[in-house]
Structure formats: structure tokens, C-alpha cells
Design a binder for these strands. Structure first.
Lengths: 253, 253
DNA sequence: GGCGCTATGATTGTCGGACAATCCGACCCG
DNA sequence: CGGGTCGGATTGTCCGACAATCATAGCGCC
């Protein structure tokens, strides 16, 4: 909006491989190619676009990583539904490169979790509640193993997001999750009885779903995240340090 | 967690071009290569990895789109800081492919906006408030041009996010923004005096920053988004229709 | 000495062709 | 019908080549 009117647009000769990628992308986004549909073979694309196979291959690679095309069984390429994990992985790496702090992560997670619990309280079904409770039981059974507790905790929150039935929120949360949850085992160890508090919080969250009590859900979401924060700090970490691969090792996977 | 123990892990021979990409990515994420650093020339990479140039090029393409490597001036490749726009573009396209509904978008935006306004109220500086007010004045001056109003509105909210000083939240919001704001001009036209209500909401939001009044900020954030919703529906749209390129045309850019 | 122009080498983008490994499908056999 | 074999198709990788473009070092001119 506030840019000066420029005489000439920037000349950017677009490489052929980019044009190939964009052409395929257009087909996908327009709906003419639907997820699951096979993209032609490389030879076909060569004929259609009139470029060399190397060029076609480079174009395909551009789309491959974002999940817009996937390698089918064997190695054939097909249109893919980008899964959130892939996008979230990219996003979380970007956050690392931008050196965001754990504080930012924590603040955002708090906001998103509060929204999530609200919708989950509205929409949770009996089955979902049962599955969540099963997860809590499993967590309790493994309560002396911080790594297992962290894994169950991560699973619990993923399931909770699903019950909120909002995929936009789900996608928005995932990058933070990928960076925060790897630190849970640290946080759980940091607090005396940390794992037990975690289990208690989960139980109360599920309770809020049962009672359809948003206040309760929000209360325990806050407590749960505050616990994480205290544990994180007690573990010798500073909330204002940038997220990195050392403290968030699983982001490399 | 709940998967059956399987005898053998899946055999996935990793293509060389992927290994090239992963190797470069590791260097970047580990910090040995920093944003701005030039990646070697293709010939160098050929020597280092011991593969053909075509292979190296395919590997580079994998990283190019996510913004992890960028074309410097000229065409030289350098390590890039992935900008949120790029990630958000990917993400918003994924949302389209997943056929998320405007309702999901609206719900998520509401939650994120409420969090944003809270932090903005805490952290806004005099300068930022002045810039926001300038934007509102400009909006008011163009109040009869729905497209311009929509553009200023988008700019306003981007600036508001900056004042919240939470990059995680910023990144989380962006995909929704990219899909929602293109519909603003529709929503503004739908409501009688829609543009004026929009300006009023913006003014009150800035007012809340000045007074450091979170309640006021939340109130007007809700009103502002409810206005969008009403306008959207009055424009003949259904909140439960999936987001697509027709209603969100700028996502193609 | 500073500035603009040019020549030279380096680098990228694109092309053509080639080959091994693998996959798919058809076919055959017990 | 299950299992093995064979041939074509497809991908992954390599090699070599060339035009266009960029970077840089000189070189001449003021």
C-alpha cells in the first residue's frame, strides 16, 4: 500500500523449471488434478511442456517437499494432500532459524490451547473422551518414565486438538507443538511430582469435556501450561533463550 | 504409541538428491551455515558430495521452495531466512486442498486475534500507534473503494500483529489471514456502511492500545470479526463452504 | 586518482543422450 | 490358484555440451 508507484515492474526471467512447477501447481489448486491423481510420467511431462527431462525433474522437486506431490508406492508421482506434519516441520524449522524464544512459543501455545479447549468442550464425543481417558491411564502406568510420559502427553494434546474439530487451529498449533513437546520430559523432571501434576491436569481437562465446562477447561489449561513453564525454568532453562535443536532435538527428525 | 510392534522397519532407499538436500539442511539448522551465507557453487557441491551436477541441482530445488535457500542477486544461491509469507502461502494452499471451511477459518482467526490484541495492548509503542492511526486515516480517505479498504484492512492487521511482538503467533495467523482477507472486500460491500464500521473498529482497537485496555481490545476484536462474518454471509456466502480459490483469489498470487 | 567500458572467466539454466535398477504387468507352469 | 519368468516402462543417476548471464579484472579516459 505505502510503496512508491514504480515505472517498471521488476524483470524476473522465470526459469523453465519454475514454470513447470507452477503449471502443475495451478492444475492442482484449480481442482483439475485432485489429491491421489497420478501426475503423468516424466516422459509425458516432457512432451507436454516441451522441455528437457532434467528440467521437468527439477520442477517436480520444487513441489515434492511441500507435499503437493508425493511418491506413490513404487516411485510414481501423484498429487498429494500435504499433511500438517510436513508443513509444521517446515514452519518449526523456520521458527528455529528466526530464533524465536520459548516465551513466544509459550505465549502462543497458551492462546491456542485456550481456544482449543473451548471448542473441545463444545464438541467432544463420548468415544473421544474414552480414548483420552485411556491415554491418561497409559500415562499413569508409565509415570516413572519421563520420556514415555512426554510421548503420551504429546499424544494427548494431539487428540485433544482433533476433538476441537478445527483444522485451521490444528495447523496453527502444530509448529509450536513440535518445538514445545520435546521439552516436556525436561519440564516433567524439573518439577517435583511433575508427572503427577501432568496426569492430574489431563484428568481435569477431560473432566471439563464431560461436564461441558469451559471455565474448568480454561483453568486447567492455564495450570497445565504454567506447570510446563515452571518445570522448564526449574530445569535450568531460560524462557527467553531462542529455540534451538539442542533443546528441541526431535525437530531434526 | 499405540502401534503394533512390527518386525521390520520399512526399507526406504533414499535417493541421492534427497540426501544432498538433507545434508545442506543439516548444515543450516546446525548453525554452521547461517542465513545469508553463500552456498557453494554447484561445481563445489558436486565435488563435495561426489554426485552429478543434475543430482545436486535436484537437491537444491528441494530446499529452494521452502525458502531455506534463496537466489541471491544474480542467481547465486545463499542460505535464506524463510519468510513467513512463503510458509504461509504453502500452508494456506494446504488448507484449501483440505477443504477447510470458512467457519474453521473464522473460529481460528477469532482465537488468534484475541490473543494478538492482548499482547498488542501490552506492548504497543507510541510510534506503532501513530503508524496504525495513519493507516486508519488512509482507509477513511479511500472509504468508497472496497478493494482499497480491504487492502488497508489487511495492512492494519499485519501491523497489529507486529506490535504484539510474538512471531509464533504471527506465523500461526498468517495462513488464515491470507485466506480471510481476500474476502474482506466482499464482506465490506455486504454490510450497509460496512467500511465505516470497519474504520470505527480499527479506531477503537487503537484506542484500546492507547488506554492499555485489554477488555476494550477484546470487545472490538469480537465486533470486528462478527462484522466480517455478517458481511460475508450477507454477501451470499455460506460460512460452512470450503475455502477455495474462487472466494480467495489472491491465494493464487 | 576516479570513473566508465570491455574482455574474460565462472556460473547457471537447459539440453541431449545414456544406462542400471527397479517396478508393473503379462505370461507361463506346476 | 500360487509361483516363477520375462519384457517394457519408469525412475534415478550420470556424462557431456552450450548459450546466456554474471563477476571481476583490466584498460582507457577524464
Amino acid at each position: 500500500m505505502s510503496e512508491v508507484a514504480e515505472k517498471f515492474a521488476r524483470l524476473t526471467p522465470v526459469p523453465a523449471y519454475q514454470m513447470v512447477a507452477e503449471a502443475i501447481e495451478r492444475e492442482i489448486l484449480s481442482g483439475r488434478l485432485r489429491p491421489g491423481d497420478p501426475i503423468g510420467t516424466e516422459a509425458q511431462l516432457v512432451r507436454q511442456f516441451g522441455v528437457n527431462r532434467s528440467t521437468v525433474r527439477e520442477g517436480i522437486r520444487l513441489l515434492e517437499q511441500s507435499g503437493m506431490v508425493q511418491r506413490d508406492s513404487s516411485r510414481r508421482l501423484a498429487v498429494g494432500l500435504p499433511h500438517y506434519d510436513q508443513l509444521a516441520t517446515r514452519a518449526s524449522r523456520a521458527l528455529i532459524l528466526h530464533q524465536v524464544t520459548f516465551r513466544e512459543l509459550w505465549e502462543a501455545t497458551m492462546a491456542l490451547s485456550l481456544a482449543t479447549i473451548d471448542f473441545a468442550v463444545e464438541r467432544a464425543t463420548e468415544e473421544e473422551i474414552a480414548v483420552l481417558e485411556a491415554n491418561i491411564d497409559a500415562t499413569e502406568a508409565a509415570i516413572d518414565d519421563p520420556a514415555a510420559v512426554a510421548a503420551y502427553d504429546s499424544e494427548f494434546h494431539v487428540m485433544l486438538e482433533k476433538t476441537a474439530r478445527n483444522r485451521v487451529l490444528e495447523l496453527a498449533r502444530e509448529p509450536s507443538n513440535m518445538l514445545i513437546y520435546p521439552t516436556t520430559h525436561v519440564a516433567v523432571q524439573g518439577t517435583e511430582q511433575g508427572a503427577r501434576r501432568l496426569v492430574e491436569a489431563h484428568r481435569m481437562l477431560v473432566q471439563s469435556l464431560k461436564l461441558r465446562d469451559k471455565e474448568l477447561g480454561q483453568l486447567w489449561t492455564r495450570r497445565h501450561l504454567n506447570d510446563w513453564r515452571k518445570g522448564f525454568e526449574r530445569g535450568g532453562n531460560d524462557l527467553d533463550q531462542p529455540v534451538d535443536l539442542v533443546t528441541a532435538p526431535s525437530a531434526t527428525a
